[in-house]
């Protein structure tokens, strides 16, 4: 019987996680630190990027109404998208949950479809659909629902429609995961005690999958807040969101430090929102769900 030395044994977990740690350090931590460092540099058209440690960029982002508007628009839009995705995705997940297994796999593929298509292809597809002469407008006019084409392109509506489409699957998956943990007999129990199908849903099913609904919304919210391709193509430059603004600072204005500051503020704001939300949810459901 080989005796295992306690030292080598206790080092094994570190050894096993080292590759993942190195990947994270090189490809995630290092770029983030570099962006953070960059955000404290300064920039002028004449001199370019000047190294240093100054808070000028942050002061600009935090005091300028232009940026206030962009941040408010981004988070407002993300909130609305999370809400709409929850309203569509939760019933969708429940229906999926109640389907016969064969149908369920087929529909799961349909629901996950948007995620399997490249973001650019999908967004351009939406642009084709939503354009002035696009299919949606042609149909609306033909059906007499609108007398002239509705503006979707370069509007908030268009951005929200396209983002909800791609983000709903994340909500469905989160809710579905919590539905699968649900004891199927609790619905039968509710019925047998005299509750209608609707009451069973409202009083018994929804409260139990609430953690799934809330975490799904959180995923959708953070993805919507940091979305770039869809807002930039469908929203254009009139409806800038934070990610598009940062992109423009980097590539159009060449003001990398300001772009880095914008990104950093977005990251910090999102992390703060996520942590606060998680704490609130955990506190609310602490006794019931461990």
């Amino acid at each position: 019987m080989a005796e295992r030395s306690p030292t080598s044994h206790s080092l094994t977990p570190y050894g096993l996680s080292a590759p993942a740690f190195i990947v994270c350090a090189v490809f995630l931590a290092a770029p983030l630190i570099m962006v953070l460092a960059l955000s404290f540099n300064t920039f002028t058209m004449a001199t370019g990027i000047q190294p240093g440690f100054r808070l000028d960029n942050y002061i600009e982002v935090l005091t300028d109404d232009y940026f206030h508007l962009i941040f408010a628009r981004t988070f407002g839009m993300a909130l609305l998208i999370a809400l709409i995705a929850a309203l569509i995705g939760t019933p969708e997940a429940y229906i999926l949950h109640r389907m016969a297994p064969a149908w369920r796999s087929a529909f799961l593929l349909v629901i996950l479809g948007p995620l399997l298509v490249s973001v650019l292809v999908r967004t351009l597809g939406w642009a084709v659909l939503l354009g002035r002469n696009g299919i949606v407008n042609s149909a609306l006019v033909a059906l007499g629902l609108a007398d002239r084409p509705v503006e979707f392109m370069y509007t908030m509506t268009g951005v929200i429609v396209a983002l909800v489409h791609v983000l709903v699957p994340f909500h469905v998956l989160a809710v579905w995961a919590s539905l699968r943990r649900l004891d199927p007999a609790v619905e039968a129990a509710g019925l047998s005690l005299g509750a209608s199908q609707f009451t069973v849903l409202r009083r018994i099913v929804v409260p139990q999958i609430m953690p799934g609904i809330l975490s799904g919304s959180l995923i959708v919210f953070t993805l919507a807040a940091s979305a770039f391709a869809t807002p930039s193509i469908i929203g254009g430059r009139r409806l800038k969101v934070v990610a598009v603004t940062a992109y423009d600072e980097f590539l159009n204005s060449q003001n990398w430090p300001l772009g880095a500051a914008i990104v950093t503020v977005l990251l910090v704001a999102t992390v703060v929102i996520v942590l606060a939300y998680n704490r609130a949810v955990e506190r609310r459901y602490a006794q019931v769900f461990q």
């Binding site: 004891d183 007999a185 039968a188 129990a189 005690l193 005299g194 509750a195 009083r203 139990q208 019931v288």
Partner: peptide
């Protein structure tokens, strides 16, 4: 329909409502 049959059922898994207290569970019907 099942919700009008006035039948009490005890399930194998008990099927208690985990988000309700004992009193709320019993009082649901």
């Amino acid at each position: 329909p099942p919700n009008r049959r006035n039948i009490g059922i005890v399930f194998q898994s008990y099927a208690l409502f985990p988000h309700m207290t004992v009193a709320e569970n019993v009082g649901f019907g």
